[in-house]
Amino acid sequence: MSSVALLTERRTFKRLRFAAPRLFATLLAFILAAIWLGPLALMVMTSIKPNKEFLNGPFALPIAPTFEPYQKVWEGLNFGVLMQNSVLYATTGSALAVLLALVPAFALSRFEIPGKKYVFALLLTGLILPQQTVLIPLYAVLRSLHLLDTRIGLIIVHGVYGMPAQILILRGFMTTIPREIEKAAQIEGATDFQIFTKIILPLSVPGIVVGYTLNFIAIWKEFVFALVFLNSENILPVTVGMLKLNSDRYITAFNLPAAGLVISQIPIVILFILTYRGISSGNFVGSVKG
């Protein structure tokens, strides 16, 4: 079997053959949909109701649907700026994390390095560390570097803290590249650096896409670092900026916060649609486990 097929083959899951009774299956599907789709659908519906329909009850269909709530929160929260910031943090922070992780992943996947297991232990520490435990010293570090309350400071923090997970994901992916391909390159005269740039890197693109996407989502969701390290209105990401929605000014008729959280989720929905196959079918699990 050639390595090509191994690398490009999309994992197809075997379905088990026995089906449950029809009624049970329907009921189960209905319950699951109600619990997970219900709240989301409800929010979308609430977000297009005008104020005066609020008292009709949460499940009353909108009579005169309107996009006014969207306009109001977009302007009120300065959502344009928040979005820009979040996109900036997520794209650059993930890029930094992946960049920092590439060579370490190569090193840990392809070489017998003395002391390798200690490097791994260090990695795992970075992975399981609760953010809150390092908030204070990171705050101090950033302040002394004059990076507190700056975009670049938050990006660096995201990059470094995204790195351990990226190393694990990329390492898992790189170990699936057949050893012989690398040996062949070595025989042909390639140095470690050339093997990395000409062989491993191009073959790792699918793994990089998965890792980058997961990191993007993680930064988009991230809240604690941004809350503690940023202060200025104009550089806040969506997660922190959205907190304002939880105030008397916005929460009165529900349609404004609903519209706000629908907006906040739009970029992720787009990303989700683009990468759906890769992420939610669980294919990334293999690369994380490895």
């Binding site: 079997m1 050639s2 390595s3 090509v4 391909i181 040996k183 062949a184």
Partner: peptide
Amino acid sequence: MVFQSYALFP
């Protein structure tokens, strides 16, 4: 060297 799996660069 020629390898068993050919080890061509995919």
